[in-house]
């Protein structure tokens, strides 16, 4: 069951692990945006070199990384398939009904493949080197300007932490209930889509009831330990912005500059 741990975090001490999670989140978002500015062979080559440079210099377990990404390539292939056969333009090599294999189709499907691959590689890298709680902290910190408009960001952060804490528990519970129903003869892997979806009702009902009673228990437990929604809260983990975060952003700006020189 552990192969689907939330966030797929791999503990470690590489430079990527040490970067501030806010830097990592903002940089990966920024990188995804600039990918869209690449429009020729040179600019794609630059971004690919950068992506693989980050992966190889990060010191994470390469084999684990590429094995983890592999299942996602099916998703890329579906996309590329659409792109390859539904785009028209330039010389047409083959066509059948709405499908065609054209010069533009081939070129744009290669670009889409590369773009999609870089997005997946980069976001996997982010998730592998950043603990889910750190991501939650970083999102809280990035959203903190919303406090000015009285958005209850502290409470939202607490809810996120609680939710992250209970995801594995509820996943285990889901599996336990599914096994209990299997023991009573429910077959989850048989029949068409509709039949399989229907088979989920006897799983979801006890799951829901348990979740709501758990929420009640948790509330009692929190209040008996003195929790009240009011007042400023202090925190155990503190995010610190270091020199390496500045360096990381400087590298990104340099990359952007190069990209704009190389694109046409």
């Amino acid at each position: 069951m552990n192969k689907m741990i939330l966030g797929r975090y791999l503990p470690g001490d590489t430079w990527l692990h040490r970067l501030d999670p806010r830097t990592k989140i903002s940089i990966s978002f920024y990188f995804i945006v600039i990918i869209f500015f690449a429009n020729n062979v040179l600019s794609y080559a630059l971004l690919l070199a950068f992506t693989f440079g980050v992966i190889f210099s990060s010191g994470i377990n390469q084999k684990f990384f590429f094995n983890g990404v592999r299942p996602l390539f099916l998703l890329i292939l579906i996309t590329v398939f659409f792109q390859l056969f539904l785009t028209r333009g330039g010389h047409i090599y083959w066509s059948f009904g709405p499908f065609a294999l054209s010069q533009y189709g081939i070129r744009s499907s290669i670009y889409v493949f590369l773009r999609f691959m870089m997005i997946i590689l980069m976001s996997t890298l982010l998730m592998l080197t950043t603990a889910p709680l750190m991501i939650a902290d970083a999102i809280e910190s990035l959203l903190s300007p919303l406090k000015r408009i009285h958005f209850p960001i502290d409470q939202i952060a607490l809810m996120i932490s609680l939710a992250l804490r209970f995801v594995p528990t509820l996943m285990d519970e889901t599996i336990t209930i599914m096994n209990a129903q299997r023991a009573r003869g429910v077959d989850f892997s048989d029949g068409g889509l509709i039949k399989r979806i229907k088979a989920m009702i006897p799983v979801l009902i006890p799951l829901f009831v348990n979740t709501f009673s758990r929420a009640g228990d948790l509330g009692t437990a929190m209040e008996s330990r003195g929790y009240s929604g009011e007042g400023e809260r202090t925190r155990y983990r503190k995010l610190t912005w270091a020199r390496r975060d500045n360096i990381a952003w400087a590298v990104m700006l340099l990359l952007t500059g190069l990209l704009f020189i190389l694109r046409n």
């Binding site: 996120i160 609680l162 939710a163 509820l170 889901t174």
Partner: peptide, 14 residues
């Protein structure tokens, strides 16, 4: 707070 957190967790788990 706890209801919101647990329904969110349930969404993720499912």
């Amino acid at each position: 707070v706890t209801k919101i957190a647990l329904v969110a967790a349930l969404y993720v788990a499912v």
